[in-house]
Design a protein around this nucleic acid. Structure first.
Length: 541
RNA sequence: GCGCCCGUAGCUCAGCAGGACAGAGCAACGGACUUCUAAUCCGUGGGUCAGAGGUUCGAAUCCUCUCGGGCGCGCCA
């Protein structure tokens, strides 16, 4: 619908001899009395054509008045052009939706090969609620991009080569020794969580006290591997219940084993972006706008994370040839963005192809008090416990009901209530109400010979409009990589459905066929929206 | 100290390539179930868009400063 209006505007511009792009907007007016759509094009053209906005608007109305799309076009305020859509045109759109939902809502895009990397939590402890938000966002973005028609691969990056994993092994080994009666305390920066005691018990079952006889380095390595595997499996299980699936798990270690880290440094060196100072190897990220140069290999010959991250992104872009890579990080990594983009440029990759989404923190509240979270200190609420308490649907919807860059307050006490305070029920209920009507039909009603002109009430027309508008929400969510537009669109449809349901009867009415036809499309669109955010459409509630 | 993000209704947030009287949900208050599920609907109240300047015909939106909050600034990971 929007694009049809845009076509008319573009024709008008051509008619006025303007062929280049002009930055006007077509929007939904805030007030209903200003029509269904509105454009500021007359005001934008005012300066250029040296005419009053009002006069340009008049010319436009004259130009467009023959279109069957509108029942009226108004000029209002300082020169807004307001469009009132013809009901027939609205229901023509509904027919298109009914004909093929996916075709109708899939925007035209050039297919790209896109990787979405998210969660990527080190397997040093269970996932907490903050990871849940990243998981919900990453997974939904992947679903949306896939729906739109891109080739999408989701990936989880495991930092299994660094000191953190070593610390995990050491902490587990100490727990193991404690179980065997050896008095030794965890180091200050060790992992305190109880889950390591359980893992240590498993190790004891498997090895008895044999690890004590091995050299410490080897014993820690065994513990590290065991703990890492157990925790990773736990993470994967949790993600699975959360309906999040990864196509690829990528190990950092692999980048070292395959010498890709060295190769990346060589690659940059050949281009002249590398120098040595104080016994360390540096990357000249300042040429690409970073605040300072960054160390890749320390003077003690150990590589920094940044070195393996460069190799990782070289692997993504060059070895695996992704057209676009989306990294989803926690907001506390924002200082890392410029660095990573510099690295992309240095690798010869247009840094616009690397999209980094910073997901703002989730504030967890318990009894109104903020709970601070730290994996190391084991002060956190596990994602899997939250899922058990509030359910997958509620959790996903809540994570996706705010824009990515706004803080999210997740109050456990409220979330646990499972009352109507949670908007997911509002939408699910709308769907269930429709399904319920269909279940109670006394016979099959075909949709041949239907006369949609019979749907005259405001409730029916508004409901139909909300479906058409949903397309804009999909486009926006895809363009801005913001799944919350989907939840927003769903809430709007649900609102119109409930209003309809309260005022209009379906079963027993003269318009039953037409209304069922409309409701069938509504249910289909809600189902589509739910699919895009990974929420279940319930038949009954 | 430097840099980034943010400050909109009691609470949580939309709106921010400048435009029409500032929006939604929740909470509060008052109504609507012999009806396809009231997990719903209808109505009411509630805001000097942190503050001060500036640009503009027009600023929540752009610029500057102030105040307040969060985060990042390592040869850490």
């Amino acid at each position: 619908m929007k694009s049809k209006i845009n076509d008319i505007i573009v024709n008008f511009l051509k008619h006025k001899g303007i062929n280049e792009r002009i930055s006007y907007v077509i929007e939904y007016p805030k007030q209903e009395e200003f029509g269904d759509y509105s454009t500021n094009v007359a005001m934008v053209l005012s300066k250029r054509l040296k005419k009053k906005p009002h006069d340009i608007a008049k010319e436009f109305v004259e130009f467009a008045k023959d279109s069957t799309l509108f029942k009226n076009i108004d000029i209002a305020g300082p020169g807004f052009i307001n469009f009132y859509i013809n009901e027939l045109a609205i229901f023509d759109e509904i027919k298109l939706i009914a004909n093929n939902i996916n075709d109708y809502f899939r925007p035209n895009v050039n297919q790209k090969k896109i990787q979405v990397e998210f969660v990527s939590a080190n397997p040093t402890g269970p996932l907490h609620i903050g990871h849940g938000r990243g998981a919900a966002i990453g997974d939904s973005i992947a679903r949306i991009l896939r729906f739109v028609g891109h080739k999408v691969e989701t990936e989880y990056y495991i930092n299994d080569a660094g000191l953190q994993m070593r610390m995990l092994g050491l902490s587990t080994f100490i727990r193991y020794k404690q179980l065997l009666g050896i008095d030794e305390n965890l180091p200050e920066d060790g992992y305190q969580g109880e889950y390591l005691v359980d893992i240590a018990k498993d190790i004891m079952v498997e090895y008895g006290d044999a690890l004590l006889n091995k050299n410490e380095d080897e014993a820690i390595s065994i513990c590290q591997e065991k703990a890492g595997n157990v925790i990773l499996k736990d993470i994967i299980d949790t993600l699975k219940t959360f309906r999040v699936k990864f196509d690829v798990f990528f190990n950092e270690k692999k980048l070292y084993d395959s010498k890709e880290v060295d190769a990346s440094i060589e690659f940059l060196k050949d281009k002249g972006y590398i120098y040595e100072k104080d016994g360390a190897i540096w990357f000249k990220s300042t040429i690409f706008g970073d605040d300072k140069d960054r160390v890749l290999r320390k003077s003690n010959a150990a590589y920094t994370y940044f070195a393996s991250d460069i190799a990782y992104h070289k692997n993504k872009f060059i070895s695996r040839n992704f057209d676009e890579v989306i990294d989803i990080w926690g907001a506390d990594h924002h200082g890392y963005v410029k660095r990573m983009k510099s690295a992309a440029e240095a690798l010869g990759v247009d840094s616009n192809k690397l999209k980094i989404i910073l997901v703002q923190i989730v504030n967890l509240l318990r009894d109104g008090q903020k709970v601070s979270m730290s994996t190391r200190k084991a002060q956190f609420v596990e994602l899997k416990d939250v899922l058990k308490e509030v359910g997958v649907d509620a959790a996903r919807f809540m994570f996706l009901s705010r824009s990515v860059d706004s803080h999210l307050d997740f109050d456990l006490e409220v979330a646990k209530k499972q009352t109507s305070e949670n908007p997911v029920y509002y939408v699910q209920y709308a769907y269930a109400r429709i399904r319920n009507i269909f279940r109670q039909l006394d016979k099959e009603y075909g949709y041949d010979n239907i006369d949609l002109e019979k749907l005259k009430s405001k409730e029916e027309i508004d409901l139909a409009k909300s479906l058409i508008k949903f397309k804009d929400f999909i486009i926006k969510s895809e363009e801005e990589l913001e799944p919350y537009f989907i939840t927003k669109g769903l809430l709007e449809i649900a609102e119109k459905l409930h209003k309809f349901y309260n005022r209009i009867r379906v079963i027993g009415s003269n318009e039953i066929k037409e209304r069922l036809f409309l409701l069938n499309s509504v249910a289909g669109v809600i189902k589509l929206g739910f699919d895009l955010i990974g929420v279940e459409a319930k038949e009954k509630m």
